[in-house]
Nucleic acid binder design. Structure first.
Lengths: 219, 219
DNA sequence: CCGCTGTCGACTGTCGCCAGTCCACACCGG
DNA sequence: CCGGTGTGGACTGGCGACAGTCGACAGCGG
């Protein structure tokens, strides 16, 4: 019920810290899907005013972690299996564009090197949360390396929903985020074979959708 | 009953109305790219409090119409030609997914019919703003008919940016939004030829990117 | 026992206010 | 004349309070 208090030592704004705290609280499962998020309660537990949590909640709403219920009340969002599938199809489309642009880029070599590095971060951690972070970091890096800022933005908009979907997925030990799943992408990019890379990404996304949709609970 | 209808129409919150008003003001060119949007000034001109304006501005910020400058000050956003190109490439990727899903859908016939109807709305209006609306409505309809809610959401997130890009484009009389440009898409969908439809969409987007990027000013 | 109604409580919508901060510009010492 | 300085203004960050609204529930009448 209580969210850890915010230390006043940080230089970022209260709104940003509240946002982070709330996001972490939701993503950590402290608030379950469907739970009502009251402004007064959150303001109390976060030690900030209602207006501040309000803005944070609105941000979370646009991120898709929170959805509006009756009378503007906000509750933690969840995804249906169908939505998970949809989500990963969109993601596949975006990342397919990313690999195409990376391959077509003159900085392809450097990009591939950066991706190699991101891949290395992948399965060294046993902590499931860290695995998820590393996986998302890899894919975000892929989008970034495309040099397409609009693509990065669109991808990040989906990131919140992805976290929800992954959170609902129970089996963290699945090889979904393993290194072997990502190496082929990098290799195809290094070869300059965009179509092969797209196929790999597509398969990767299909598998992930299947996996996480099966595990997503019907809210 | 008149009382009921009045109360029903009055259900929209001040925040939503302020948001609409601000969006309209920016999109109508009343505020130019780079203009500073002061909370107090807007609160005064809109007749609402600063907090209300703030939330509307934050929303606009996430829509991409407004961007944060120094010390959190917000100003009307503009797009570089490069960003316009990026934007339309992302849009092409999303709409390509849309046409693929529409073609693969069992409701393809009905979808094609709905698109035919949307096409009919296209060039009957001489008013450039109406033309833009009809064009965006057609493409949004395309995304909606895919049945992929995440896709619709992602597309709508880009909508604001598209409007500014189109706004910067001077030549409203260009055949960019003409009916002839959109009919081939519908025809390919009716034939069930997804790849052809994707190619048409891709060309359409490339042309549009070229057109609007050339006209976008380097703010 | 059932349905209606009035009241209470909780929550969000909205507002006005105070505090902190940064910028511009006039002012003063060299 | 020039550079440092401080002072005023303007803007955003953040907060507490009031108002409107809807749901829940007890109480009353049939």
């Amino acid at each position: 019920m209580s969210v850890e208090s915010l230390s006043a030592l940080d230089r970022s704004t209260l709104r940003e810290r509240s946002l982070e705290a709330l996001r972490a609280a939701i993503l950590s499962g402290r608030y379950r899907p469907g739970d009502h998020l009251g402004e007064v309660e959150l303001a109390g537990s976060l030690g900030v005013s209602r207006g501040t949590v309000r803005e944070a909640l609105r941000h979370l709403q646009q991120e898709g972690l929170v959805t509006a219920g009756t009378r503007g009340m906000l509750r933690v969002n969840s995804l249906t299996p169908a939505e998970v599938h949809e989500l990963f199809r969109v993601r596949a489309a975006l990342e397919a564009l990313a690999v195409r642009e990376v391959v077509a880029s003159p900085r392809r070599e450097a990009a591939a090197a950066a991706l190699r590095e991101a891949v290395e971060q992948l399965s060294d951690e046993a902590d499931p949360a860290a695995r998820m972070e590393a996986d998302l970091a890899f894919h975000l890096q892929l989008c970034r390396l495309s040099g397409n800022s609009m693509l990065v933005e669109a991808w990040q908009r989906l990131e919140g929903r992805m976290r929800v979907a992954i959170l609902n997925g129970a089996d963290w030990q699945a090889p979904m985020m393993a290194r072997e799943r990502h190496v082929p992408i990098v290799e195809a990019i290094e070869r300059g074979d965009a179509e092969a890379a797209v196929r790999v990404v597509d398969d990767h996304m299909s598998d992930a959708a299947e996996h996480f949709a099966a595990a997503s609970r019907p809210a």
